[in-house]
């Protein structure tokens, strides 16, 4: 038991250069900011998050359990606009690394309130954004490539657990998405028809895809590839562990390291998300996912790659 505990402790110990987490912070904030600017551009702040009398679709002031936002502040359009404004400022601060941890906390709490005002407008990707914001509350990522560096002093090392936890979050997302695909359409006995059917959904497809009828086998192949990609995610932590403990030897470890599993699994994910972005209208989902991908690389790997250039 003691040995197990030491192994667990060692898994989360150590530190590393903050360049990867800073990259994720900036990339995620920019994508999120883009989405919030869409809300502003379309004049949707009040329709989405305003009170019932102002036309708010969520009717937050008439809900059985009124959200704290509308308990503590007046149920009017100013509250909705204030919350949105605070969220935008917090995300901008996170992007430029100014008081980054406080900014992440503020963005998290305000965004959680808005999510409860109108849950229908809050998608899975928003949940993921909040999970990552929660992580950034504990990571001084703004002290590298951020304005926190001149204020609080730059950092050359941050705890490595944050990036490892982020990898675990992404893996859990993919893997559980894979194992929950229990509809027959995702499986051989359902003819791998899932992608074909999804792309015919007019609420999702970017353009009419009736012509895919002629390319049905290709959609079947891509359905199978999607399932394979999501199910294989479970091996990513193992691959990282084997790479990390390279010196320990062992046949399985050697095979995994020789295969360099993550190096070919990751491009599959990039391809899948670019494919989703090109064919479906599901907003920032693919871009948020890709913004998190730098986490799969150790900061030293990125430094080495740049040095080689």
């Amino acid at each position: 038991m003691k040995r197990l505990w030491f192994a667990w402790r060692a898994l989360w110990a150590g530190d590393e250069h903050p360049r990867v987490m800073a990259t994720v912070r900036i990339a995620l904030s920019l994508v999120f900011l883009y989405d919030l600017l869409q809300v502003w551009r379309f004049h949707l702040v009040v329709p989405l998050w305003g009170p019932a009398d102002a036309g708010g679709m969520g009717q937050p002031d008439r809900q059985r359990q009124v959200v704290e936002l509308y308990q503590w502040f007046a149920a009017d359009v100013h509250t909705a606009r204030l919350a949105f404004g605070v969220l935008v400022v917090a995300v901008v601060c996170l992007a430029v690394g100014l008081f980054s941890q406080v900014a992440a906390l503020v963005a998290l709490l305000v965004y959680a309130q808005l999510a409860r005002v109108l849950p229908e407008a809050d998608r899975g990707i928003d949940l993921l954004i909040r999970n990552v914001l929660f992580l950034f509350v504990f990571v001084p990522s703004g002290r590298f490539a951020g304005l926190d560096a001149p204020i609080f002093g730059g950092l050359e090392r941050i705890p490595a657990w944050s990036r490892r936890l982020l990898i675990l979050q992404i893996v859990v997302m993919y893997f559980t998405a894979g194992i929950q695909k229990t509809a027959v359409a995702w499986w051989p006995w359902g003819g791998f028809s899932a992608l074909y059917i999804v792309l015919q959904d007019m609420a999702v497809a970017r353009v009419p895809f009736a012509w895919l009828r002629a390319l049905y086998p290709a959609t079947q192949l891509l359905t199978a590839a999607t399932m394979l990609f999501e199910w294989l995610a479970v091996f990513v932590p193992l691959a990282h562990w084997f790479r990390w403990t390279r010196s320990r030897g062992g046949w399985l470890r050697a095979q995994f390291n020789r295969l360099d599993f993550v190096r070919w699994w990751l491009p599959l994910g990039v391809f899948m998300h670019l494919g989703i972005a090109a064919t479906m209208q599901i907003g920032i989902f693919p871009w948020v996912m890709l913004a998190l991908y730098p986490a799969f690389f150790h900061p030293d790997e990125i430094a080495r790659a740049f040095r080689r250039r």
Partner: peptide, 14 residues
């Protein structure tokens, strides 16, 4: 309060 959680049913039932 944090709006965090885990629910990743993506296109579970086409």
């Amino acid at each position: 309060i944090t709006g965090t959680g885990q629910a990743w049913g993506l296109f579970t039932y086409p």
